[in-house]
Design a protein around this nucleic acid. Sequence first.
DNA 1: TTGATAAATTATAACGGTATAATTATAATG
DNA 2: CATTATAATTATACCGTTATAATTTATCAA
Lengths: 235, 235
Amino acid sequence: MLKYQQIASEIQQDIEKDDLPQGTKLPVLETFMSKYKTSKSTVIKALSLLERKGLVYQVRGSGIFVRRRNRKGYISFSNQGFSDELSEFDITAKVMELDIRKPPEDVAFNLKIHPKEDVYYVRRIRYINGQTLCLEESYYNKSIVTYLNTEIATGSIFDYISNALGVKIGFSDLYFHIQKLNQEEAQQLQLKKGDPKLFVETIFYLNNGVPFDFSKVTYNYQQSQFFFQSTGHSL
Amino acid sequence: MLKYQQIASEIQQDIEKDDLPQGTKLPVLETFMSKYKTSKSTVIKALSLLERKGLVYQVRGSGIFVRRRNRKGYISFSNQGFSDELSEFDITAKVMELDIRKPPEDVAFNLKIHPKEDVYYVRRIRYINGQTLCLEESYYNKSIVTYLNTEIATGSIFDYISNALGVKIGFSDLYFHIQKLNQEEAQQLQLKKGDPKLFVETIFYLNNGVPFDFSKVTYNYQQSQFFFQSTGHSL
DNA sequence: TTGATAAATTATAACGGTATAATTATAATG
DNA sequence: CATTATAATTATACCGTTATAATTTATCAA
């Protein structure tokens, strides 16, 4: 791990370990410099990383302070997309379908592939604390995600992709819609037709800009409590 | 404006002016260094800023590339919250209520003030392209936002706060919920009771960490198409 | 005590340099 | 021609320094 990431990680652990409350002032930069035996720029980078993660805020001329959320039970979605810090919740998944097929037109378009190229198709129901969280349909570019099976898809597909396949995940585009459930979705989520849903289409890209996953997710509105932290202009 | 912000702004304008397509490679760092007569670190800072804004992505060993969204008609919400780049849309507002009052318990809690301190209360309906976009209830800490009137609230309150009052806006916490409209909300949004809604509570903080605005917004689900770009882990 | 002024503290901007890691292009090899 | 090894390109990490801007604290005057 990079030095500034390591430092950021240690500072984060310290904050969480001591459960420092909102507004607590952290040591000054000089302290971190000598503590971690590194340069000022590296400390600044580490703290900027924590600021982007929403853990601290920095005030010029004053200091660096702890930033905390004040509500529990919300699924946080950071700049990495969702699924960060879901350790707080018990998330499981049931794989309904998994096969190799040719992509529909919209999928081919979003993955920037030819409609006759193969994709992995995965349909899952995900559960949070035993309740239905969402229906998920995902299409993976098979030339990048070369292999998948039900066992893998029952766990975290992304962990598998980044670890076993050594693929580097970069960024993603998310498109949110609020809609009404149709009959089929309602049945699978154990809700009623016409009930609200959050529908999210996401395109995931590798770090070199190549799209490798296009997914459509329908969320159970009863579980749809999300938390998002925005950070300042400059940083 | 700071040098790196200025450079970022100019690069952004170049990208938009020439309408550079996704994946276009930008000049190498050296080019920017000599073009803007500045150091490498400053160029890197400018480009990192653009990366966080979702305008470019950088690939080590390869180059810097243009990142573009591929759908129109979505309200983008960046790390500044919503309302960035809304120039694409025609947004108006009608002020329904505006007065000074004592905050309810939850508002006092989120603004971290005593329940007997004064707040400005503003209730607005906002329209997008002539259609109802959302109902908004906002509470402003009066000791920070010292004055408001209907004329100001008809426009952008945040522009007024940051320009006229010279207050520096920092970050914000957003809490999202998917729910059903009640009778009153449905009527105001010209929808039906039980229709879906996106309900967002937001706490806005000054750059020194003091909360100054707590708002509750109910979105018309028919207009609720949002776009969000996530950026990589490291950066 | 109050209010203004100055000094100290603190984070940030900006410079410029060396070293490193990832990618891409080129050359060598079979 | 395909594969492999090497070199060139390119962005990033990291160092250390000076200058600057915001804030806080201390000082002084009324």
